[in-house]
Design a protein around this nucleic acid. Structure first.
Lengths: 133, 133
DNA sequence: CTAACACCTGGAGTCGACTCCAAGTCAAGG
DNA sequence: CCTTGACTTGGAGTCGACTCCAGGTGTTAG
């Protein structure tokens, strides 16, 4: 799969895909004879994983470290687990924060909706008064 | 309440509080005779609201617009509601993404934990073999 | 009377994460 | 054979959101 298609598929720009590879967030992608990127299954899974983690706010730096450890093999399993646990806790905390914010937003929207309805009712009454007058 | 206390209370740096005020995210805070910020109840509620919204990822620019509309009074209620609805939907979407990521992280952590246990068991077996031998 | 301290201002600097660009390579179509 | 278009590179530029700094003021402690 060539880079433009990957970009399309995952909603990441071509530049972002190349950037991820440059900084080591994703190991070098498979290339065809002409030296052009040709993402294989593994490459795609990595892109998917990184996209998922980034969208939850995990810092690029942390993911670089993690992916580096993955490359080093089984001896780094404990270290990798530590990273994931730490990040999991951060994500869970953010999730809770966001849930609170979401509730507040919904509440505020409700209040605004009521205020708008009230305003509309008043408008109607004014119209009625004008018809009477 | 003076700025250092507000900073402490909301976990925002003094510089951030002043920055929020400068860019219009929070309207000018009450000052004492000496011209020093002295946050009153309303000021604090605004800080709290902004902190909450920022922590959910609402852009500063959007919040500036929103707070500007609040200052303009009742005629802007519809516009404000529109902004909140739009942002609410974005927060809800992000929340869902993060929940997926959290699940994935938990799954991966579990896998790592099993791998670590297995490794430990193997170590034990090796120790036993050495004792026998 | 002066030193320390907490505050003030406007402006510049930093940081993370892209995003854009100039210059070059290669394959396919007219 | 030449152009078009999608790809390549390294490096520079941008953007959002702070964060820091120099220089100044005002109050309190010794």
């Amino acid at each position: 799969m060539k880079i433009a298609e990957v970009s399309e598929k995952y909603g990441l720009s071509v530049d972002t895909l190349r950037y991820y590879e440059r900084v080591g967030l994703i190991p070098p992608v498979h290339r065809n004879e002409g030296g052009i990127r040709d993402y294989n299954e593994l490459d795609l899974r990595r892109v998917d994983f990184i996209k998922c983690m980034r969208s939850a706010g995990l810092p690029v730096e942390v993911l670089i470290e993690y992916m580096g450890l993955v490359q080093q093999g089984d001896s780094t399993i404990e270290a990798r687990k530590e990273i994931l646990v730490e990040q999991r806790d951060l994500v869970a905390a953010r999730l809770e924060e966001m849930q609170k914010t979401l509730n507040l937003l919904n509440h505020k929207i409700e209040v605004y909706e009521k205020a708008i309805l009230k305003k509309e009712k008043e408008m109607l009454q004014i119209e009625e008064l004008m018809e009477e007058g």
